[in-house]
Design a protein around this nucleic acid. Structure first.
Lengths: 253, 253
DNA sequence: GTGGTTGCGTTTGTATACAACAAATTAGAT
DNA sequence: ATCTAATTTGTTGTATACAAACGCAACCAC
């Protein structure tokens, strides 16, 4: 179809993935409002894909947790309460805690721990500068995500890894979901330092095969993210840095 | 299409759901072997639905965890190791533990606890007879599933409930996954009695707002299921009662 | 005036046709 | 005989056409 026959980028990824990414962007950017029914036909127009891949993308986004199936058919954008979000974060923390415990109890070789330690050192380097620049915050987000991914893998449990990935799919539940939002807060640096301490402790615990300690510290680590969330929501100055803002339902809804 | 124009049952549920159920049955019954690529065209024949709903069903079954996407396209039946299964059970136990803790910490009214207690009493009634009949085992499975569902809801956390449902979707990870398999084992009755004690304790803990205790006992409860799994696998006499048997990959694979 | 019914328009669910891709097999050449 | 290359077959991904269902609105009857 279409006047432009094929662009290379179109062929490299499937239309389904393209539609999924486009729709996710629309949802997170707020183009599609929570509670609103998503019209397939409209999605076809905005994404450029045809109905079949759009439909596929909608199903995947539902499984991802961003959409909700309407009983009579079709999908709507899901709305989240503040408690939904904090619960999702604590949920992720609980799963990461289990992963850390598995890693500690089952044992991890020094070789496997190496990338984690490198990541830790890189974050240390980043935190050395005061005050922390916006660019440093971006780097932190990337390194933090990497740390969490590596840690998750240490569990060597495919079912658990899979479940953690799913729990982190919600943008506000991901390990670095609210880091950027608090970049301008005065407490920002302290929080980052505390978080890094958690990283350090969990590695130590895993190294010494202290399962309970590793689990506990990862849970506490997630509580820190919940605190970030609260801070960011109270202090709405830099809320525009948050993509998922549009999904939070206020008390008036 | 087809010679038989329409059966009422066909029209009541969507073709997608029909295909999903049919394919799940085929997977769990072993008609489709682990590692084997699922041919859409073949699925169209066996399910009676057309390619579009079949495709939809395949996507959903992948999200469910029964299928795995092949990089070059299409899906294959996933194979699970024994550790995958025990990890999945422990994963569910961890999530149920979190649900119990939420319920305990956030408080539950006597009214909300009522159905749980009724369920508990019904199981008590069931366990009174010795030895326990096969029919009683079936009733137990249903009541046990109900108990776990009610308990999960007590958390009043939609994200957590959702995640628990997903974790329990794998048939062998569900609360009653291995109960039937051990129905003929000599230890059967003891295990059921111990499980029921866990049920009793978790309710008591929630009532007294003892979050840590509620969480711990639900985790232990899942460990009991892991023990069931081990027993059932070692003692392969009644393994035919297990639907998911075909998915377990042996050491030789 | 209100309630029910009917008809239309838009929606989703389903089927199928088409095209691009991947793999396998066969033929040819060295 | 073996390796390479090309063709062929069967696969999935995509697009579109069709049908049924739902919602809405207008109109008629009571």
């Amino acid at each position: 179809m279409k006047a432009a026959p094929e662009r290379e980028v179109d062929r490299s990824v499937s239309q389904t993935v393209k539609a999924q990414l486009a729709l996710r962007d629309q949802i997170l950017s707020g183009s599609l409002r929570p509670g609103e029914r998503i019209s397939e036909l409209q999605a076809v127009e905005t994404t450029g894909a045809s109905r079949t891949p759009v439909r596929m993308a909608l199903v995947r986004l539902e499984e991802e947790g961003l959409l909700e199936a309407i009983p009579s058919g079709g999908f709507m954008v899901k709305a989240f309460s503040e408690r939904d979000i904090s619960d999702s974060i604590e949920l992720r923390g609980t799963l990461e805690g289990l992963a850390a415990r598995f890693a500690a109890e089952r044992g991890v070789s020094a070789r496997e721990l190496e990338p984690l330690k490198e990541c830790l050192a890189a974050i240390d380097e980043l935190l050395r500068q005061v005050p922390i620049s916006i660019e440093a915050f971006s780097s932190y987000v990337a390194l933090n995500a990497r740390f969490h991914a590596l840690l998750t893998e240490l569990s060597r449990s495919p079912p658990l890894i899979r479940q953690i990935d799913r729990a982190s799919a919600l943008p506000f539940a991901s390990p670095s979901g609210f880091v950027m939002a608090q970049s301008a807060l005065p407490e920002a640096q302290q929080i980052l330092i505390i978080g890094q301490e958690h990283h350090r402790v969990v590695i130590d615990a895993i190294e010494n095969r202290e399962g309970a300690r590793a689990e506990a510290v990862m849970r506490e680590h997630a509580r820190l993210a919940v605190r970030n969330l609260r801070l960011a929501l109270r202090n709405r100055t830099h809320l525009d840095l948050l993509p998922a803002l549009a999904l939070i339902k206020t008390a008036t809804d």
